[in-house]
Amino acid sequence: MEMDMKMRMNTNAGVNVSMSMNMNMDTNVDVNMNISDDLFLPLDESEKDSEFIAIESRSFIADAARRFSRNKLAMAGFIVLSAVVLLAIFGPVFSHYTFDGQDPSSRNSGSSLAHWFGTDKFGRDIFVRLLYGARISLMVGFVSAGINMAVGIAYGGISGYLGGKADMLMMRVVDIIYAIPSLLYVILIMLALGSNIRSILIGICISSWVSMARIVRSEILKLKTLEFSTAAFVIGASKARILFRHLLINALGPIIVTLTFMIPQAIFTEAFLSFVGVGISAPFASWGTLVQDARAFIDIYPMQVVYPVLAICVTIFSLNFIGDGLSDALNPKSRR
């Protein structure tokens, strides 16, 4: 009667014997002759682990970092951006050129060992000016993103958490700010406060925090209906505690993602402003002013335009890849 029997060994789970038996057999057949009788003694309680958890413990951030590191494009972006940041910080230190050091003897020279990216019309080293420009551009990007984050989280968080009339009022203010073209503010502020980094930062931040506030508010609105927020209320947590310790910490993913997309936006705005001539003024350099300076000679020395444009592109690309990677890493469910 072993005719109908099928036996199969599964290699990965030890001896995993499975068989199907003809149903009209009424006796129990022993196929496992190799199993000795003493195996039929009761299993000791200590040998059972019925609350066993198979997966290893990892915090949210560690888990996200692991997912991020597996994303090739995002990692490439991260490496390139790190290189840009490091070059911007340390590059000028190791160079004997300065951003305003003129050398009338070699003006508009092409790439050489002495001047990697050549020189401009005043004989200033373009590579070093590019690095100084990176300092300003990146600083504008990071600082404005930081300010936006702080203001946006506070405003959006409070608005979303309070809800009702307060939320209505606070969101209408946001709508009004949103309705006026942001370049208008920036240019007005530049005219009023002068062309420097501080006024560029104020100009960018005064309007762009609202998108962060909106994101945070919608996240908080969603999160505050979840039971863990009620649970926090029931155990007696204060409003501030619920908002900051429970809700915002769960909105971290979308906040970080929004943040990484705000940085390139700010860099772009700064470059644009400098290009149209209301940004950083000479002799300081930002990537925007470098393009602007070289624009007049675009026919003769096109490379002088290409370098700063490439710098802007590479940085913005990297930041966007990082942003995409972070949004995948922080919201694993949103993929596909």
Binding site: S18, M25, D26, N32, L39, L43, E47, S50
Partner: peptide, 19 residues
């Protein structure tokens, strides 16, 4: 692991079907 009447054989050997 959750069975009150588990025996040593249950760990490591998949049980066969008995009709």
């Amino acid at each position: 692991p959750r069975c009150a009447r588990a025996m040593r054989v249950c760990v490591g050997h998949a049980p066969a079907r008995t009709a």
